[in-house]
Design a binder for these strands. Structure first.
Length: 918
DNA sequence: GCTCTGCTAAGAGGA
């Protein structure tokens, strides 16, 4: 029997006498999630009573294979040795985190705070693991070593190592792997799976097993272990995979005819009974020096006790995360003096004044900084839980008709497969043409139909064929070929977005670095203890625009930081490029960053237009725009060359997420320039700014704020906005815009920029559609001849679409086209993606997109579809910054299409309608 | 109830 619900009460554990002798028990009251809301009692027996130590009312609890009985008319559940008890099952604990936790809970916590720094054992370990995978897939050893060392070129180079030297080290380890593979019948390929991604709904756990042999987990360790037994934490890691393999095996059995007699096998029983650890360094040690068991492969048996121990450990982590408690280390028996993390542990404890078993060193940072740390740490963890909810969507099998759920491409038709060099596979499938957020370059879970219970592999999307949408997303017309690469072949019928915690990890690292490693002087200005200081450069940088010139002067003269506020069309990117050049001329090494790849590429483009090209772009191949690939740092290749290119670059450009990578952490800069800073969270901004001595933030807090999944407001306010409020004197607002006609910009200027925004010159102010080649305004219907017009199509909203309004928008676009306006000069903006799809069905050759995606670009003619009728409920309309963005994309003509009554129900929108109705 | 960009992940070590 299975029970799942919210804990209402946890009684104190007690000892009772049973027919088998003394037993411990603990009663937990749970309110079931679904069905009748009557609370039920679950009695936890034996080791499961440990759960009571951390279980609290409000937490979710799942109990599997519990015994059920009736007592005084009430259903009671009993969880003994055959049962599984899972706390907060929606929180997906990573297997490597369980491993860290059994060593020491504080190690688990420290792993989250500071990211892995570049270290040779780590890089070598990664290469050995990759070679291991290659060998399992039948690749030649020397080919594998060469290829994997090349792939790790940049990291190896940054560590100052040579490829040959690393190859020698890796070969020693690989020899152990090869020797072991050649024993007996272990080479039969069908028996093997390499790098198996496992996600468990039942146990709230995920991880990637190095290999699975005959259904049993094999873990590779590049260390040595001369004991006969594997290390405890290594056994725990392998056992966690065994637990998840058992769940899969039980699912498979349940689905097959084998158990047709009605019997079932529990996942615990179905788990493999043996695990293998492969300590490859054992093969390389000198046999005369070392004694003990030098065989690399060590097997151990996996019983239900060990499996349940893993579940209980996982539960401790999930319970701690529920309250975001901070572990002290006293929870474990580990001896701090043997711990590699001891120094870090003591330093973090000292700086944050945390209790810890290892003790504290150093002086605590000021209380206001500690408070800031706690606030942002909690907010980032809330963001992590939101990512976990994305994982949960993987096992909620999507109904086929849910076309608005764009997290998966379903109903694919497998077309074929091809083996690539190195044993990887290229798989092709035909898509049904559904809209999806899956793009080229994405990491996805490819499956034969169900991502969790079916055959599934982590895959990279290589190509979504024939896409006619500029952003590479699959569009709605007919089938298209999809190509992915995977380690193991399968019949691809479905692709799911594979959620990543990478961004949350990086935010946490940035928070740690900014508060614990930056100098007090750098932090003083962030915490308002000191005003930022400036020099006044004598030079003139930009001739015909005082605000732009001031902005560059501020940036060049900044001792701490400068802020440049750039409303739409004010030449923000041009100014930024001029600023970077001025900094470089002074001799600075500059880091150029932004949240999105697009913004980073735009900034490079502006630099290029000003003749500056000594730039290295760090980023993934699929993230970097085609015409900017020439600046991209190839991270694979000769170590010395890779590292040299990065280290020698005067200007390095990367997204803030990439700034948090280990490779970038090895770099330092004089000045960090961040574009579109209004779209970044504080820790997101800090990921870039901590790499430099001073920084310049360029952005507009009146446009869209950071995108955050959880509802926590701590992250939705950008550092840019906070600093511009705290230090207005550090900011310069660019006040002359080169984009919009006078009338078009008037509303935004009044509502969002205190009337300060004005056209740069008469020509900008007076522009109209007649200025376009072959266009006459007289060819337009009379209601569209003004620069700003309003159309009420009298439609009605159904879901997030308004078909009548979509028709009206199509009519407006047709009128402009017939008046001679080129399709490329027209853009259509809608608040909802559903309406965008509705519009796309009517408009084949003009750009249609959401407000959010239109930020940063502009068109001669813009048509906005508001969708709403009745009233304006919904957060999309609450944030006025969204209309600021929508209305300021137009240069010569702006048409608002919406329901007059609905829009007039809100003051700001009412003023907008009046302005547009002129 | 809605907007949505980043990111390969997981990888090491010893009394």
């Amino acid at each position: 029997m299975q029970l799942r619900g919210v804990v209402v009460d946890v009684a104190d554990p007690k000892t009772v006498s049973t027919q088998y002798g003394e037993s411990e028990l603990c009663e937990v009251t749970v309110r079931p999630e679904r069905g009748a809301g009557e609370p039920t009692t679950v009695t936890l027996w034996g080791k499961w009573t440990e759960t009571a130590d951390y279980l609290e009312p409000g937490m979710e609890l799942a109990v599997y294979d519990a015994e059920q009985r009736q007592y005084q008319g009430e259903t009671q559940y009993s969880a003994g040795g055959d049962a599984s008890v899972v706390v907060e099952p929606d929180f997906l604990v990573d297997v490597t985190d369980i491993r860290a936790w059994v060593q020491c809970p504080r190690m688990y916590y420290l792993r989250k705070l500071d990211g892995a720094e570049l270290a040779y054992p780590l890089v070598k370990g990664t290469v050995v693991h990759e070679v291991f995978g290659d060998l399992l897939r039948g690749r030649d050893l020397d080919d594998a070593i060469e290829a994997q060392i090349e792939a790790a070129g940049l990291d190896i180079g940054l560590l100052g190592r040579e490829a040959d030297e690393v190859a020698g080290d890796v070969r020693d380890h690989a020899a152990a792997i090869e020797g072991w593979l050649e024993q007996g019948t272990l080479t039969e390929r069908d028996e093997w799976r390499s790098e198996m991604t496992l996600i468990s709904e039942r146990y709230g756990m995920k991880g990637r097993a190095d290999a699975v042999r005959r259904g049993m987990p094999v873990e590779l360790k590049t260390g040595k272990n001369t004991k006969r037994e594997p290390r405890f934490q290594d056994k725990i890691q392998a056992t966690a995979y065994a637990l998840m393999l058992g769940e899969r095996a039980a699912n498979t059995l349940a689905a097959s005819d084998v158990m047709a007699d009605g019997g079932t096998t529990s996942p615990l029983e179905a788990a493999p009974d043996t695990g293998t650890l492969l300590y490859t360094k054992n093969a390389a040690v000198d046999r005369n020096e070392e004694s003990g068991d030098l065989s690399p492969a060590k097997e151990f048996s996996i019983g239900s006790g060990l499996l349940q121990y893993v579940i209980r450990t996982r539960n401790e982590i999930a319970a701690m995360e529920h309250d975001t408690d901070v572990p002290t280390g006293y929870e474990a028996n580990a001896k701090c003096e043997y711990c590699f993390e001891q120094d870090t542990c003591m330093a973090v404890s000292g700086r944050l004044d945390q209790e810890s078993k290892a003790g504290q060193v150093g002086v605590a940072i000021p209380e206001e900084e500690r408070e800031y740390f706690r606030r942002f740490y909690d907010a980032i963890e809330a963001e992590r839980r939101a990512v976990h909810r994305e994982y949960a969507k993987l096992w909620e099998q999507l109904p086929q008709e849910r076309a608005d759920d764009d997290r998966a491409l379903i109903d694919l038709e497998p077309l074929g497969r091809r083996e690539l060099d190195g044993g990887r596979w290229e798989l092709r499938a035909r898509g049904t043409g559904a809209v999806s957020k899956i793009r080229e370059g994405d990491l996805v879970l490819a499956s034969d139909g169900h991502p969790i219970t079916g055959d599934a592999e982590l895959a990279r999307v290589e190509r979504i064929g024939g896409g006619d949408q500029a952003d590479g997303t699959a569009s709605a017309d007919g089938g298209r070929e999809i190509v992915v690469t995977v380690d193991e072949p399968l019949s691809v019928r479905r692709l799911d977005v594979y959620p990543s915690e990478l961004t949350t990890d990086r935010l946490q690292n940035a928070l740690h670095d900014a508060l614990l490693t930056q100098s007090p002087e750098q932090k003083d200005v962030l915490f308002g203890r000191r005003a930022p200081e400036f020099d006044e450069p004598a030079e003139t940088f930009i001739d015909n625009n005082d605000a732009q010139d001031d902005a560059v002067a501020r940036a060049v003269g900044a001792e701490d930081f400068a802020l440049v506020h750039g409303p739409p069309g004010t030449g923000k990117t041009y100014t930024l490029a001029r600023m970077v050049r001025a900094l470089v001329e002074r001799g600075d090494r500059v880091l150029l960053s932004a949240f999105t790849n697009r913004a980073v590429d735009n900034a490079i483009e502006a630099l290029e237009e000003q003749g500056y090209t000594d730039i290295v772009r760090v980023g993934t191949e699929s993230g970097v725009r085609e015409d900017m690939q020439k600046y991209r740092l190839d991270q694979s290749g000769d170590p010395g060359e890779c590292a040299g290119r990065l280290q020698g670059a005067q200007v390095v450009a990367a997204t803030t997420a990439t700034c948090g990578s280990t490779a970038m952490a090895s770099q330092s800069f004089d000045t960090v320039v961040v574009d579109e800073a209004g779209q970044l969270t504080e820790p997101g901004t800090l990921a870039a700014t901590t790499l430099g001595d001073r920084f310049v933030l360029v952005g507009d807090h009146q446009q869209l704020p950071p995108v955050v999944q959880s509802e926590d407001e701590t992250l939705t306010r950008s550092l840019f906005e906070r600093l511009i409020d705290a230090h207005p004197e550090a900011g310069v607002m660019l006040d002359r815009q080169y984009r919009m006609a006078q009338h078009i910009q008037a509303f935004a200027s009044r509502e969002f920029y205190d009337g300060q925004l004005r056209p740069a010159n008469g020509a900008v102010a007076a522009q109209k559609v007649d200025d376009l080649d072959g266009v006459t305004v007289d060819a337009l219907p009379s209601h569209l001849r003004e620069r700003v017009s309003f159309v009420d199509p009298d439609g009605s909203r159904t879901g997030n679409t308004n078909p009548t309004e979509a028709d009206a928008v199509a009519d407006v676009v047709r009128a402009y086209r017939e008046a001679g306006v080129a399709a490329a000069d027209i853009g259509v903006i809608a608040p909802y993606r559903a309406q965008v799809a509705e519009l796309n069905r009517r408009l084949s050759d003009v750009a249609v997109d959401t407000v959010d995606r239109f930020q940063g670009s502009s068109k001669e003619v813009i048509v906005v579809s508001f969708v709403a009728t009745g009233d304006l409920d919904g957060p999309l309309f609450e944030d006025y910054r969204r209309i600021n963005v929508a209305l300021t994309r137009a240069k010569k003509a702006l048409v608002l299409v919406g329901d007059r009554t609905a829009l007039s129900s809100d003051e700001v929108y009412e003023r907008m309608v009046e302005w547009a109705s002129g």
